[in-house]
Design a protein around this nucleic acid. Structure first.
Length: 609
DNA sequence: CTAGGGTTAG
């Protein structure tokens, strides 16, 4: 009888905005049909598709007689509004209060909530209930279960469920392939792709974005090229943002630029997601100017766009610009979130704006109702310790409501060394010893702290601990990007084609540096050996090799861009400052924790990292 | 005549 109303409501659910749906709702109310047949359930689902959980919930609560459809709709509404925990907590009311049993639609929604929450404990309970129910044959729920197990890290269980799906569709295949990819099981993922008959853009997106999530950036690129050979048409921007994330993580500026060109060519340059990843990519590839340009020309901007640029500016030591951008953001009515404040406090700590940083921390809680996480406390600690407020820093460490790991204590210890706080250094060192140390660089810090206080017995203890705990120093390497070419250097590498030219150049620079007052700081060398040998070790650190190669092969006058897997050692940091002033060129190093822009003998990190 | 599943950023 009222088919046209149902049909119109369904159309409203897929509209770009909720207004037609609201108008139709008003119309239905006026006709007095708001409790008629399937209309209330359709209304709930219409509101849920627009993420208007409040409207959906009001209708749900006002229904005199709820059925399984109402429950499936409200659970989906919670999931779509990013409140999966609410789904789980109200579900018991379906059985206890409404005396209803879940059907396969309800099961699929519940599994979805568990997947979002990554809760294996509840997921297993739902799975058990599903198996015992009369709907245990349902393939759709099984596909959701595959996804749930994948997200909980149980790829093998996911595969077991996958194998029981009697008629697999593109979604079941995609869930399993994405699971393998996200767990880094590349060959299994590709194997499954081959078994599948028709591969579409979704399958490829699941595979490639999964690989990006598990850190297999190079494989992701190879497969992206493979996909284009298969002539899969890119009709939505998801895959592009995944590939941009991959270039960002590889710090491969040229590659990122090529993807940017592809984005423009296919016509996704106005996509919000794509723009945001591009801003981040350019910042991570140390081309902050390009990041700003993408941001300025972006058609749509949200918190993430603003925050991406704020974080980018902060990481490159451009604190004033980051703070100014924050003011613009507030003026344009965008509400900041937790990540925005990480960037802002980080920015303040780099330029010693202690009061400003402290105010921002307070403002985050008082003005925006956000609760600080471990990252915020770490930034606050950094803010204090960089400027020499070590008592305040230690206080933050002792009072913050999070468990503190080795890296955080180590950073305070390095601040103690820098500001000559021997007593506190010993206190912190003792704490670290009790905590258990894994990172080789922490051992060096500890050994230096005790040596500085002439506590030789403890120095010996640290050395012994280092041997017995079998610390393996990850081999250090640096990549230098020269336009389309990239060269990788490992520490101590001596068999490079251009070894002799590099040696001559480095020796020449070494001589010039020593004339300017450079003294090698051998306290960063891990192994026990003579002073000369230690100096020789430093001489062959990978970042120096990479810079030398960049100077020899790069375009004269251009910026030398280096990416290093570990942190830059203190001695290399000094050396790179000297080199930048001797050769009059900018050197940008992205190390494991931050960016260093060496220019005219100074570094953007203000010598603290 | 109503309802359910997979991929994207700081």
């Amino acid at each position: 009888m009222h088919h046209h109303l149902l049909q119109s409501l369904r159309l409203c659910a897929t509209a770009g905005n909720p207004f037609p749906g609201k108008t139709l709702h008003a119309h239905i109310l006026k006709l007095g049909l708001n409790q008629y047949g399937p209309l209330p359930n359709t209304l709930i689902s219409m509101y849920s598709k627009h993420g208007l959980i409040k409207h959906a919930l009001q209708l749900f609560d006002e229904m005199p007689q709820r059925d399984q459809v109402s429950w499936a709709s409200i659970l989906t509404a919670y999931n779509k509004s990013n409140l999966p925990n609410r789904s789980i907590s109200i579900f018991p009311n379906m059985i206890v209060h409404d005396k209803l049993l879940p059907d396969h639609f309800v099961f699929a929604s519940l599994v979805n909530s568990c997947a979002a929450l990554k809760t294996l404990r509840i997921g297993l309970q739902v799975h058990a209930r599903f198996v015992m129910s009369q709907f245990s044959y349902d393939d759709v729920t099984k596909s959701s279960l595959v996804d749930m197990y994948v997200k909980c890290g149980c790829v093998c269980t996911a595969r077991v469920v996958f194998d029981t799906i009697s008629s697999k569709n593109s979604i079941s295949w995609t869930a399993m392939i994405s699971g393998y990819a996200r767990s880094g099981m590349i060959s299994e993922a590709i194997e499954l792709m081959k078994v599948m008959k028709v591969q579409d853009l979704f399958t490829w997106t699941a595979l490639i974005s999964g690989l990006v999530q598990s850190g297999h950036f190079v494989s992701a690129f190879h497969l992206f090229i493979e996909m284009q050979k298969e002539r899969i048409k890119i009709v939505d921007p998801f895959i592009l943002s995944s590939v941009i994330v991959a270039s960002a993580n590889l710090a491969a500026l040229e590659l990122g630029k090529q993807v940017h060109c592809l984005v423009t060519k296919i016509g996704f340059e106005s996509s919000l997601y794509v723009c945001n990843t591009l801003v981040d990519m350019y910042a991570k590839c140390s081309d902050v100017t390009a990041a700003k340009t993408v941001f300025c020309y972006a058609v749509k901007k949200d918190v993430i766009s603003w925050t991406s640029l704020i974080v980018g500016l902060a990481q490159h030591g451009k604190a004033k610009e980051a703070l100014a951008l924050y003011n613009d953001m507030i003026s344009s009515g965008v509400k900041p979130n937790e990540v925005t404040f990480v960037g802002l406090i980080y920015a303040c700590s780099h330029v010693g704006l202690v009061d400003k940083g402290r105010d921002l921390f307070k403002s985050m809680v008082d003005d925006f109702g956000l609760s600080p996480n471990l990252q915020h406390y770490t930034c606050l600690l950094d803010l204090y310790s960089r400027s020499g407020y070590l008592d305040e820093a230690e206080n933050v460490l002792n009072t913050m409501p999070f468990e503190v790991d080795e890296a955080v204590w180590a950073s305070l210890l390095s601040a103690c060394k820098r500001f000559g706080k021997i007593e506190m250094g010993i206190r912190v060192a003792n704490r670290l010893m009790g905590l258990g140390v894994k990172d080789p660089s922490t051992f060096i810090l500890l050994s230096n702290a005790y040596a500085g206080a002439s506590m030789w017995e403890n120095v010996a203890k640290v050395r012994k601990l280092m041997v017995t705990s079998d610390v393996k120093k990850e081999p250090g390497y640096s990549c230098v990007h020269l336009g389309k070419e990239t060269e990788v250097f490992y520490a101590g590498e001596t068999c490079h084609l251009m070894k002799n030219e590099m040696l001559v150049l480095l020796k020449d620079l070494d001589e010039k540096m020593r004339k300017k007052g450079y003294v090698p700081d051998v306290s960063f060398v891990l192994h026990d050996m003579g002073k000369h040998e230690k100096e020789n070790q430093l001489f062959w650190h990978s970042e120096r090799l990479a810079v030398a190669y960049g100077l020899l092969k790069g375009v004269p006058g251009s910026i030398i861009r280096v990416v290093k897997n570990l942190r830059v050692c203190g001695d290399c940091h000094t050396v790179l400052k000297f080199i930048s002033s001797i050769i009059g060129r900018e050197i940008v190093v992205r190390d494991a924790s931050r960016f260093h822009h060496f220019k005219d003998g100074k570094c953007s990190c203000s010598d603290f990292w």
